[in-house]
Amino acid sequence: MLSRIAESLYWIGRYTERAEDTARLLDVHYHHLLEDRWADEATACAGLLRAMGDDPDELIAATDADGVTEFLSFDTKNPASITSSLTAAWENARGAREAISSEMWETLNTTHHTLPSQARLVAGRTPHDFFRWVKERAAMLAGLADSTLSRDEGWSFLVLGRNLERVDMTARLLSARYAETWGPTVWTTTLRCCSAYEAYLRTYRHGVDASSALEFLLLDRLFPRSVLHALTTAQRSLGELDPRAGRTGVDDDARRILGRCHAELSFLRVSDAAADLPELLEHLQDATAQVHRAVSDRYFLDTHAIAWSA
């Protein structure tokens, strides 16, 4: 498979997951702020911006729920906004149309073309419909990929991208929440972000407490949005890309980093995770970034056009 195509598929996976997760995060937090008037809006918004890698001090416009929603949903100057992510996914698909099914392409293309009208619809109204739309489009793409893509290398890159992004975004989500300002229902809110609330209740059969919620989101083996599950899936994809298994060790950097991370989480006690949560989340983000670099170096080498200086 061409490196360029592989890279596009990887990024389609990452960008759609990013758009979806950002929509989830905003949907839940926006309504949480409305329902819980004890939450300190400015601090909460600043926490959310920091978690998404932005410096709230530089963004004077985005200090309230509406401002943050605007910035993270529609701002085309913000490369991590939902709009930017969906556009980037579309651009990647445009360059790889022959490698994905036409249903997938059409879904991404329709999404891209509907974006401006969706944004207009939201202006001055509740953004919930927009977030829901984003989640539905992402789900549709995932479903079409699942039922129309051959399980070849391209599929593995798509799944790898999606799951790496999920690890990264879940780590961000958890950093956004470990601020006191979210108020007492913070863990319920956090679980809701990942559509994990009902699954949590069915699993634990008691009310939400910090340690069980953290355990579920980080360490659950069966829930598809938990960090451990995403790591497992990403690891499997890497394995499919490089099926040679030597007698000792792994010579692929990405697999080594991911595997170590996976093993750490597999044997981590939730009390230890809670004790060093900030370090753990930072470690997870570092690991995803390293895996990303290793995958790029190995598979996407030299796909960037060389810019000749005039």
Binding site: E7, P79, S175, Y178, H206, D209, Q285, H292
Partner: peptide, 23 residues
């Protein structure tokens, strides 16, 4: 709340790393 949340860890002061970007 029925079950109190865990003691909150401090808010991250510095922004996390910005998301990776594609080509």
């Amino acid at each position: 709340v029925p079950d109190p949340a865990a003691p909150a860890a401090p808010l991250p002061d510095a922004p996390l790393r910005p998301p990776d970007r594609g080509p």
